[in-house]
Design a protein around this nucleic acid. Structure first.
Lengths: 337, 337
DNA sequence: GACAGAAATGATAGCGCTGTCAATTTGCGT
DNA sequence: ACGCAAATTGACAGCGCTATCATTTCTGTC
C-alpha cells in the first residue's frame, strides 16, 4: 500500500515523532538525523497524507482565494491572480481553493463561516472589493483566520500586496499632457473600489501638476464594464467642448470609449486619444492597441500568498508589499490635433 | 469546541455509526431515524471534518481541475469552466482544486502523480488538450483515478461533456453563404486541438452543402492567438482573389483578422465579413461586434463535474453529454458587396 | 406465535499523523 | 570525571470519522 511516516521511521531507525519533526521543519533535530530521514523519504517516495496531517495537527494546509463573482464574471484579472497564488502555494506545499462568493444576500456571513468550516481553511486571500467589506473582515478576525489582501482600499493594518495606482494614473495622464492635451476627461470606476479612487486621485494630481483646472464636467461615472464605458463616453462627447483625450479607469471601459468614438466617426487617435488601465489582453486586441498601465496581477497574487504563508508559519507579522507599475504606451494616444 | 459526529449521536440517542450512515446517505437507515439525525445536525450546526472523513474513509471529496497553462495563460474560457465546476462541486459537497499543468517536460508523469498523491485527489476534470494526451490518460487509469473530459477529441470511451462544434461551424459558415459569400476563407487553430478539426470539418461541410468547391488556398494556419490571426489574415489578403468572408476558428484570431483588415483600410463588414467562434467577452468588445458561436463553457464545466461525481458515487458508468450551441449573429458579417 | 430472513443498528478497531510530556543524550564548565 | 542545562529523541494518546462484522429489531409466513 501507501508509504507511511511510520515506514520511513522504521527504515531510518528513529521514532515516528522524529520523522514528523523533519517533515514539519521543526528546529530541534540533529542535522545528521535530518539528512538520514530526508534521504529515506526521498528514496521511499514518501508522501505525507494531508488528511492525517490535518486531523492530527488541526490545520489543513489549505488557503482559500475569495473573490466576488458578482460583478466580474470570469475576469482575466482574477485568473491571473489565481495563477500567481497557485504558484506560491505550490512552492510552499499548500493547496489553494478558489472560492467565488456573492456579496449580496443576507446569509453572506453564514456562507463565509460554512466555507471556512467545511474546508477547514487555514488562511484566506482576498481581492477587491472583498478586501474592504467590513462584515467579512470582522468575521475572519473573530474566527481567527489569517488573511492577506490584494489591492486593499484601506491600507492601514492590511497585509498583502498593493500597487501605487495613484502615481501610475498620474504618470499616464501626464503622458497625455505631454502630448499637448488640455481637455482630458476621466471615466471613474465603481465607487467603492479603491482602484476607482486612486485612479481619479492620480488624474487630479496630474492636472494640478500641469496647471490645468479640474472640471467636474469632464469626469463621468462608469462601472468598469464595456457598456458603462460606452455610456460615459457618449455623455462626454455631448459636451460643448469635447475632450481631446479620455482616460478610462480600466481597459474594458476604454474599449467602450473606442466603440462610442467609432459610432460618431471619430478616429482614434487622430481625433481622440484614449487610454485605459490594467493592460488586460484586450488592450492589445483593440484597434488601435491601447495605451494603458500594466498591473502585474500574477506577481501580486504570488506575493499576497507568500505574505499569508509567512503569517501561517507564525514568522513575523506580515507586510503590505508594493509592486511597481509600468506604462504601456501604444497607438491609442497621440499628439493633440 | 467543535461539534463532532459523536455529539450528534449522543443528542439523538443513536450510535455514531448511524449518524455516519446518515451523513453518507447510506441506504439502510430507517426514515424516522434519518429525520431525527438530520434535525439534530441542523440544529447543532454540525459540520463534518473533511480531514477525519478523508483519513477514515480513504477519500478526500476533492476533485482536481487539470488544465494546460502553457498555451492560454489565464483565458476566460478556463475561468468560465472553473466557475461551472465549482458550482457543481458546491452542490455536491465536493471541493475543487485548480491545477495548472505544464505539458512539456520529462517529469510530466511525476508531476501528475505528485498532484494526485499530495492532495489525495478523488477524481479529475480535464480540459483540452489534456483530454487527449495519452500519457496522462494512461497514468490516471493506472492509478485508478476517475476522470471526466471537457470537449475531448476522441469521443469513443470518453466521459464528460462536449458540443457539436462541427455542426455549429457548419451553421456559421452557412450563414455566410446565405449572405451571398462564395470566397469564404477559414483560419484553423492549433493542430492537435479537437476544436481545430471539428471547425474545419464543419467549414468543409457547409461549402459542400452550398456547392462551393473547397480550395486549400483559402485555409490558413493559426494558433488560436490574436497574433496568429493577424498573420493568417495578411496571407489571405495577399491572395489574387481576396476572400469576402473569413471564418476564424476562435474569437481571438477573428480579432486579429479585424486588425489586419484595418491595416489595409478594409472596412468590416462592408468590405469583409468576419466571424469567430466561442463568444468570448472580446466578441462584444470589438468594433463591430463579432458574429460567432456561443459555447456554454460554464454549463459544460458544471455538467462535466456532475458526470464525474456520478462516477465517484459509483452510480452508473458516466456519460458523454452533449450541450447545444447558439449562433450569435452580430454586425461583423453582412451581405457580400 | 414461533421462526427464517431481511432490515436496522451498534461495538470495536483503526486511518496516518501530531501534541504533550517524559526520557535520553550531548555539550560544557570546573 | 562529575554535574547540570540544553539539545534531542521517544512513548503514548488521541484527532473525528468510517470499515468490518456482530447484534438487535423488524418483517412476513405458516
Amino acid at each position: 500500500m501507501r508509504v507511511r511516516l511510520e515506514d520511513v521511521a522504521r527504515a531510518t531507525g528513529v521514532s515516528p515523532k522524529t520523522v514528523s519533526r523533519v517533515l514539519n521543519e521543526e528546529a530541534s533535530v540533529k542535522e545528521s538525523t535530518r539528512q538520514k530521514v530526508l534521504a529515506a523519504m526521498e528514496s521511499m517516495n514518501y508522501r505525507p497524507s494531508p488528511a492525517a496531517r490535518g486531523l492530527a495537527g488541526r490545520r489543513s494546509f489549505l488557503v482559500a482565494m475569495l473573490y466576488d463573482n458578482n460583478n466580474n464574471p470570469a475576469s482575466t484579472y482574477l485568473a491571473e491572480i489565481q495563477d500567481g497564488v497557485l504558484d506560491a502555494c505550490d512552492a510552499n506545499r499548500y493547496s489553494m481553493m478558489a472560492c467565488p462568493l456573492r456579496m449580496r444576500g443576507q446569509d453572506f456571513i453564514r456562507r463565509v463561516d460554512a466555507l471556512i468550516a467545511d474546508h477547514e481553511i487555514d488562511g484566506v486571500i482576498m481581492t477587491p472589493p472583498l478586501t474592504d467589506y467590513p462584515p467579512l473582515l470582522q468575521r475572519l478576525q473573530e474566527q481567527g483566520v489569517p488573511y492577506a489582501s490584494i489591492s486593499p482600499l484601506h491600507r492601514g493594518r492590511a497585509i498583502g500586496v498593493c500597487m501605487d495606482e495613484q502615481q501610475a494614473a498620474e504618470a499616464l495622464v501626464n503622458h497625455l499632457v505631454e502630448l499637448g492635451h488640455r481637455r482630458i476627461a476621466h471615466i471613474v470606476g465603481i465607487a467603492n473600489h479603491g482602484a476607482s479612487r486612486w485612479r481619479l486621485a492620480g488624474y487630479k494630481d496630474a492636472l494640478a501638476a500641469a496647471g490645468i483646472t479640474y472640471d467636474a464636467q469632464y469626469v463621468a461615472q462608469g462601472e468598469f464594464t464595456f457598456g458603462s464605458g460606452v455610456m460615459a463616453a457618449r455623455q462626454l462627447f455631448a459636451l460643448p467642448q469635447r475632450p481631446t483625450a479620455i482616460f478610462a479607469a480600466n481597459d474594458d471601459m476604454a474599449a467602450g470609449v473606442m466603440w462610442a468614438a467609432n459610432e460618431l466617426g471619430l478616429k482614434v487617435p487622430r481625433d481622440l486619444s484614449v487610454c485605459g488601465f490594467d493592460d488586460t489582453p484586450l488592450a492589445t486586441q483593440l484597434w488601435p492597441p491601447l495605451t494603458t498601465v500594466r498591473q502585474p496581477s500574477r506577481e501580486m497574487g504570488k506575493l499576497a500568498a507568500l505574505q499569508l504563508m509567512e503569517l501561517l508559519r507564525g514568522r513575523g507579522t506580515g507586510l503590505l508589499v508594493q509592486v511597481p507599475y509600468a506604462l504601456q504606451l501604444r497607438e491609442s494616444t497621440a499628439a493633440v490635433p
